[in-house]
Design a protein around this nucleic acid. Sequence first.
DNA 1: CACCGTACCTAA
DNA 2: TAAGTTAGGTACGGTG
Length: 859
Amino acid sequence: MDAKRRNSGPPRGGASQAKRGKTGGDWEDSPSIFEEELALFEEADMEAEEREGQAGHDVIPVGELFSTDLNPRWRRPQAAPLNPDSDTLVFQQIDLDYYLGAAVAGMPGQSQGNVPIIRMFGVTDSGNSVCCHVHGFAPYFYIPAPNGFTSDHLSEFKRELNSAVLKDMRYNKDNMSVTVLAVDITHKESMYGYHGKRIADFLRITMAIPRLIAPAKRLLEQGFKFGPFPIQSFSSYEANIDFEIRFMVDSDVVGCCWIELPKGKYRVREERMLGETDAHNPGKVSLCQYEVDVGWTQLISHPAEGEYQRIAPLRVLSFDIECAGRKGIFPEAEKDPVIQIASMVQRQGEKEPFIRTVFTLQSCSSIVGSQVLCFTKESQLLQSWAEFVRTVDADIITGYNIQNFDLPYLLNRAATLKVKLFPYLGRVLGIKSVLRDSSFQSKQMGRRENKILNMEGRVQFDLLQVLLRDYKLRSYTLNAVSFHFLQEQKEDVQHSIITDLQNGNEQTRRRLAVYCLKDAYLPLRLLQKLMCVINYMEMARVTGVPLTYLLSRGQQIKVVSQLLRQAMKQGLVMPVVKPEGGEDYTGATVIEPEKGYYSVPIATLDFSSLYPSIMMAHNLCYTTLLQKGSAEKLGLTPEDFIKTPTGDLFVKSSVRKGLLPDILEDLLSARKKAKAELKKETDPFKKQVLDGRQLALKISANSVYGFTGAQVGKLPCLEISQSVTGFGRQMIEQTKQLVESKYTIANGYQADAKVIYGDTDSVMVKLGVDTVSRAMEVGREAAEWVSSHFTPPIKLEFEKVYYPYLLINKKRYAGLYFSSSADTHDKMDCKGIETVRRDNCTLVANLINTCLQTILIDR
DNA sequence: CACCGTACCTAA
DNA sequence: TAAGTTAGGTACGGTG
Ligand SMILES: Nc1ccn([C@H]2C[C@H](O)[C@@H](COP(=O)(O)OP(=O)(O)OP(=O)(O)O)O2)c(=O)n1
């Protein structure tokens, strides 16, 4: 199944080809290493079998007789009876969405018409699946109350707005009569700008459904008249927040956190027969083992600390399909059959998959360590696999390029063959999985087109998407990636012979099945090795967004989620601003390099987390910004605020502490923890992964700064971003001066120190010392001394010594990197040079690399 | 040949 | 909230 790889490839510029095995001709079956590995699973299974039932390592000619009981391991563990009066239900939530439905009797909120209901999916400690309907939470937004507005005006305002919204609806297909549920007077303050903590009246407008927020906002903006007030235009606040995020912020739920439903506070849904249904007293609508209803204020969300950092035994399903394409033509779902689907299921945290199975079209010889299910009709294969997915009830679905190839292919193929029961892959009964196109564009990641397939309650965790987001690689083929991370290759089968193998005999199809199994196994291995689930969950918890957002959205949503949480604590609300482009602002300084080859140690000093620490040290935030004239108006004395290098004014933390500094503290402390773990870790590969986690948290912290400078973003504030870079420019210049003025012959040092290069937050200093260890000593001392000139938490750190050092140009240099020891270099560090760029062929990279080695190591 | 604008990718 | 930021190198094509 090479089809998908060709489809995906690197976004552009991928130079090297994936390595193919030697020859593709030998169809002889000498057992591969992977087969032996599979066989080992079989042995390990023997013991488990008494507990979990037969693993079922056999060939079953299924024919017409498919049943989800074919393998007792498929089902989740039996769920203990749940008594809501005496049992507390605790689960880890992994996905969250909302739907419109009839209110459930006894639950809070509107009872008439369709109401929004939040749906949380999760897993308990014992591995049972949960679907939790959360009731009574309605969407809302704010506007500033007009002058002279009192509670006497509320009902009139509400009535007028309601009728305006109704009139605005082109077709009111739900026949709604109440669109505005409530209007309340609240005491809030805009987070944009400091205005002397003047709490003002804001109207909180609660709408019946999320979709109505946008029209209500628009109508109020366009000019709205009610009661005795003149027609006026209202600016709105928090009217552009995803409903899921709104709920999570208000109920203090973060992504992947543990949820507790106290006894007596929730209801359990039972299976209902069709016809027994009662709209206000519904039965189960999901495949989850526990399905419950709860009021939104009743659920307890546990912060991810201590025991609540754990991860539930999630079921991770990895799969891969093979299709019989025609020679040289990319498989088309309308024409080319699906001939095999391999699936592996593993519990998060365990080392091996406990389900290993392959569905084949036509007979297939047995494979030790896995179950082979043979079908004679393709439509049956497809339908059975869908049933398999529903039975296994996976929480996380992975594979390689499943999002843009396997899943769409299966869905289209099933549609072609009219397999009616196939496209129900989610956890909610009766919701059909359909394909959608979407495109995602950002400067960070370029333009990315994707297909989207809805699967309520299951998280699609396509490993290719993860790698594209998190790793810059030369090639993203599964083979290249496996080799890179696992030093392992795919089973050697050329895609051109797949059809021939299928048309051969049960031995050749067996060979194909082994290949297919491996392609399902590799993503699972990679997921584990790269600790994707752990890292993504941590990110979801730290930034507060659902797991799925991390693969489908950008950095902004993370900042918004954190901003709203901090703002809510202080009674601040976030304005809606219309995006408008403008001039770019000035960024960082790159010190003009003194190009050349240095055969003396060069010390590198580097501000740690420069921009975040600037924002913390100077209390830069939306809430501390003094807009033009504010300082005078509020009667602030010069001691109350600072003037940044760009001339912008911000109040000091003694007047009010900003939200952004608080957010940054959280992010940096998470990063610090990750760095501490990194330090403790000895396994080099795990070190790399932890470094990746640490880096992701760094980018999240830097994105807080980036967010304020995002002019097409949701709350740009160039005063903040340009002040940050302004401080940065000042600091690198000052650092250079300080170092060069102190370390001089006149001051008793061996030589005059010279800053030969520096970029944004670092200076490379030629100290005039001969040894690495001496450079480290002086470097450390200099860093400490320079730090004392700045406000904490700003800190200059001694980071490394380069010896020797080759400085080619701005942003292009190489050197031997000394940090952990003065005697041996840790690595050869190359920045910006062809060796690290992916728009060169490997020959160039290798050539330059050899040159650099000759120069720097062999001298 | 100088100069400018664009594509691509990287450093920070 | 569709989409973090700017600086800057190299290659290359077009223009005058
Ligand atoms: N993706 C990035 C990387 C950096 N920067 C900005 C903000 C950083 O504070 C500054 C310096 O970048 P570094 O790569 O040196 O990283 P930090 O200083 O943030 O972290 P550390 O040096 O502790 O690793 O550049 C940024 O805006 N976005």
